[in-house]
Simulated assay, not measured.
Amino acid sequence: MHRERRIRSFHPRKGRMSDAQRAALARLWERYGLRVDGRSRIDLGELFGDPELPVLLEIGFGMGDATATMAAADPGTGILAVDVHTPGHGNLLRRIESDGLANVRLAEGDAVVLLRDQLAPASLAGLRIYFPDPWPKARHHKRRLLQPEFLELALSRLRSGATVHCATDWEPYAEQMLEVLSASPELENPYAGSDGGYAPRPEWRPVTKFERQGLDKGHVVHDLVFRRR
Rank of each mutant, 00 (worst) to 15 (best):
R3T: 14
I7W: 01
I7E: 04
P12N: 04
K14N: 13
K14D: 12
G15A: 08
R16F: 14
M17W: 15
S18P: 03
A20L: 10
A24R: 01
A24L: 06
A24D: 06
L25T: 06
A26L: 12
R27H: 10
Y32C: 14
G33S: 00
V36K: 00
V36R: 00
D37P: 02
S40L: 12
D43N: 08
L44F: 05
L44P: 02
L47Q: 04
F48V: 06
G49Y: 09
P51W: 08
V55W: 03
L57S: 02
E58Y: 05
I59H: 05
F61E: 04
M63C: 11
G64A: 05
G64T: 05
D65F: 14
A71T: 08
A71Y: 07
A73G: 05
D74V: 11
D74L: 08
I79T: 11
L80P: 01
L80N: 01
V82S: 04
V84M: 04
T86G: 09
G88A: 02
N91D: 12
L92M: 04
R94S: 15
R94M: 14
D99V: 10
D99S: 15
G100A: 09
L101R: 04
A102R: 11
V104H: 02
V104A: 06
V104Y: 07
A107K: 00
A107Y: 02
G109N: 00
G109W: 01
G109S: 00
G109E: 00
A111M: 03
L114D: 02
R116Q: 15
D117V: 09
L119K: 02
L119V: 05
A120W: 05
P121E: 04
A122C: 11
A122P: 09
G126M: 08
R128V: 12
R128H: 15
P136M: 12
H140E: 06
H141S: 09
R144S: 09
L145Q: 02
L145W: 07
L151E: 00
L153Q: 00
L155C: 01
R157G: 03
R157M: 05
L158G: 01
L158S: 04
R159A: 13
S160N: 14
G161Y: 07
G161F: 12
A162G: 07
T163R: 13
H165M: 14
H165G: 07
T168H: 10
D169Q: 06
W170H: 10
E171R: 14
P172K: 09
M177S: 03
M177R: 01
M177V: 08
L178M: 11
L178V: 06
E179K: 11
L181P: 00
S182W: 02
S182R: 07
S182C: 03
S182V: 03
A183S: 10
E186Q: 14
E188I: 14
N189F: 09
G193Q: 11
G193N: 13
G196T: 06
G197V: 05
Y198W: 10
A199F: 11
P200Y: 02
P200R: 04
R201H: 09
E203L: 11
R205K: 03
P206E: 04
P206M: 10
T208F: 08
K209M: 14
E211P: 07
E211Q: 05
L215T: 08
D216C: 15
D216W: 13
D216P: 07
V220Y: 11
V220P: 06
V221M: 06
V221T: 11
H222V: 12
D223K: 01
L224E: 04
F226W: 10
R227Q: 15
R227E: 14
R228D: 12
R228F: 09
R229D: 13
R229W: 14
